[in-house]
Computed example of a mutant assay.
Amino acid sequence: MVLFLLYPFLDVLRFSTWDWSGLSEPKPVGLQNYRDILTDPDFGRSLLTTLGLALLTLPPFIVLSVLLALALDGQRYERAIKALLFLPGLVTLGGASVAWYTLFSPEYGALASLIPIPRWDQEVFWALVLIALFTLWRHMGYGVLVVSARLKGIPRTLLEAAAVDGASPAEAFRYITLPLLRPAITFLVVIGTVLSLQSYSAVFLLTRGGPFGGTRVLGYYLYETGFENFRLGYAAAVTVVILLLTLFFALAQARLLRGGEHE
């Protein structure tokens, strides 16, 4: 923990107080990098893009995870379908990205001759949709497993008692199943939001922040700042801010989960 977490974090804090390109002599600037972040329009746009991508991805992720878990619960083919849903998460990210690019390229993709592919390489909205679909494809299996595990813990006697009392399936879902699924749903919402704040790889491999910077999420902005523009001191400050945002959502996660358990 000290070697691989604490020491690197302290080093990042130290770097964030420098004006440093990685090659030049570090120049201490105190908290200037953090003040610059507050007025940096590129950072603000990247943060909004990150939150927008989260809003585009999280609702269908949560809804589909719940619906698929409910549809598969107790079915003969439940395990096989769950394994197929989880399989994309086991594929290496690089290989999966190349496959998606080869399939969905608007100009020479394998699907372009069969169905019209939107010009996601020229339109920001469709580029965000592509990344959202790629993210759903990779992580849907995990969401289904989390909801399904919670679903298995709901006593069947509660649902049977509700049916005896005259509750319809929709009412049983609304008043019994859904409230008891709240901890699992809360977990997926907050974890998904945290991962969105740290997203980078899919954008780097599929769109490189384009078109026109429309998919430049915080993780990719951090990469550009540090390793393309060689502002390593400023990039370190951005890293600290992202870590603080992540910590905020992690604390919110713990609080919401405790609240769900108490209920």
Rank of each mutant, 00 (worst) to 15 (best):
L130E: 01
S105C: 01
L85D: 08
T92P: 11
L90N: 10
Y101P: 00
K82L: 15
Y101L: 07
A99Y: 10
F104E: 00
F134K: 01
Y101M: 03
A127T: 08
P118Q: 06
P88N: 10
G94V: 15
I115Y: 10
V91Y: 02
A83T: 15
Y108L: 15
L85I: 15
Y101R: 05
T102S: 05
L103F: 06
W126G: 06
L130W: 03
L93T: 10
R119S: 05
Y77W: 06
G74K: 05
A83E: 15
D121H: 11
L133T: 03
S97E: 06
S97T: 11
G109L: 02
A83M: 15
D121Y: 06
L114A: 14
A127G: 07
I131P: 00
G74A: 08
A80I: 12
L93K: 06
L93H: 06
V98S: 04
P116Y: 08
R76I: 06
R119I: 05
F104S: 00
V91Q: 03
Y108E: 12
A80Y: 13
E123A: 09
P106Q: 09
L85K: 06
T92W: 07
A132K: 01
E107F: 13
F125R: 11
L84G: 12
P106L: 02
I81Y: 02
L85G: 09
V124M: 07
A96K: 04
E123N: 13
R79W: 11
E78I: 03
L87C: 12
L111D: 05
G95C: 04
L93S: 07
P116T: 14
I115M: 14
R119L: 02
T92D: 12
T92Y: 13
G94F: 13
L85N: 08
L133M: 11
E107G: 10
A80K: 11
L130Q: 03
D73H: 11
G95N: 05
L136S: 06
A99D: 02
V98D: 03
Q75N: 02
W100R: 01
G89L: 12
A132H: 04
L90K: 10
L90Q: 06
D121S: 08
A99I: 11
T102W: 09
G95M: 14
S97N: 00
D121E: 08
F104C: 00
G94P: 08
Y108N: 15
Y101Q: 03
T135H: 01
A112T: 09
S97D: 02
L114M: 15
L130M: 11
V129D: 02
A99N: 01
F104L: 13
Y77P: 02
I115R: 10
R119F: 03
L84C: 12
F86N: 14
V91G: 03
Q122M: 14
V129Q: 04
R79E: 11
V98T: 10
G109Q: 03
A132C: 07
L103N: 01
L114E: 08
L90E: 07
A99F: 12
